[in-house]
Design a protein around this nucleic acid. Structure first.
Lengths: 225, 225
DNA sequence: ACCTGAACACCGTTCAAGT
DNA sequence: ACCTGAACACCGTTCAAGT
């Protein structure tokens, strides 16, 4: 029965995925090439195509590997606090892995890790009192919202940022731009400049997530909110 | 004063942007190369770097060009209906331009078109009764939400879809997968399979947007909701 | 001021050939 | 069964050189 008697860990899809994860961390998604992943495992690029159909499939594996380190927050008999913690920790996970949002976004090829997370989240929504239909939709909303938010947060804001300008500097520059607009043509932009560019991403996330949770709460009968 | 006396339209950034737009429509974002854009305007790739710092900057221009066809919905003295229409038409615009969400997402290098849209949307939020701080944040929330949603909607769902499988087929396959899971380990996923994979993207968008709008409404004093 | 040729250092993928 | 060499058809970007 033992198909692999020697200790040398044959080149598996698992090993490939881990190598891809290291390359992603080191060089980012734009620097992630089949050639580099191959080099990382000590093999030539062409060899990868024996284990994996193409680069897309490797990215599917990578996506699930990123989710592997996700940990659901503790149960605490307060659906709203749980879902808040859930979304915040999902955001943290995406922020902590380089370009993670871009890798994961829209890639709903459900790997085992994603399945476990979904199962757990669905359970909390149902016990909170949401109907089956609402539970399914709410789960989609939360996933799409967090991924969308972090995607904005993590992606290069413009050509400027690629060239080394920090996020804060870009925001400040936008603030100056807004303030400098003609007040007759752009009264709102110029007046709201501070509010538009002041809040950092943590504050924005908090605001947005609370609005989404308010919206979900409105689906519940008043006594369960 | 006339710097360009002959009628031949010199190679401008504008012309470049329009060419890029055509290449995007034809070949998608992954097929959009500097070489192809150059060919589209009858020039060699190296020439582009006279007009534009790099590809990122061309993508910034492209992003604003996509927004150029956006039209704010009519005023109708109902903030909720207006914002619904706003978001729905923004989604439409992104869906109608190939890979538009990927081009626009996170690229807040505010071009003139985006500025005009923001100004208009801020105005509606303020007259609806939102505070200045809430107006700024609500505008961010709506933009991030729609972009995040369409990004999921438009991006290849997995290696499978790249190989020609339709979105509906992928969803159906996911449904079969969910239903086939062991009911003791995945009770929620298996029971909610239909709800999770049934609704099409229009229904999902409608649900999610209404939750977001409910959440925003909760910020207003009751009489203005 | 604007464009080109040629080069540099890369890509993803295929496929016959090796072991 | 698994890996390689070599090739194909591409990339973004730079830079001396042309006009």
């Amino acid at each position: 029965m033992p198909e692999n008697e020697d200790a040398t860990p044959a080149l598996t899809r698992e090993a490939l995925t881990q190598a891809a994860l290291r390359v992603l961390e080191r060089d980012g998604l734009d620097g992630l090439s089949m050639r580099k992943v191959a080099a990382e495992v000590g093999v030539k690029a062409a060899s990868l195509y024996w284990h994996v159909r193409n680069k897309q499939e490797l990215l599917d594996l990578l996506s699930d590997a990123i989710l592997a380190s996700a940990e659901p927050p503790p149960r605490q008999d307060d659906w709203r606090a749980e879902l808040y913690a859930y979304s915040a920790s999902y955001r943290r996970l995406l922020l902590d892995n380089r370009d993670a949002a871009r890798v994961v976004a829209g890639r709903l090829a459900p790997g085992p890790c994603l399945l476990n997370l979904m199962e757990d989240q669905l359970d909390r929504l149902r016990t909170a009192g949401f109907s089956d239909a609402d539970t399914a939709m709410a789960s989609y909303l939360l996933g799409a919202f967090v991924q969308g938010f972090v995607l904005q947060e993590q992606s290069p804001i413009s050509a400027a940022e690629v060239l080394g300008t920090s996020r804060r500097d870009v925001a400040d520059a936008a603030g100056d731009l807004f303030r400098g607009l003609p007040t007759d043509q752009y009264p709102n932009l110029s007046q709201l400049a501070d509010h538009l560019t002041g809040p950092d991403m943590d504050a924005r996330f908090d605001f947005c997530l609370n609005r989404v949770l308010d919206g979900l709460a409105a689906l519940l009968p008043p006594e369960r909110r």
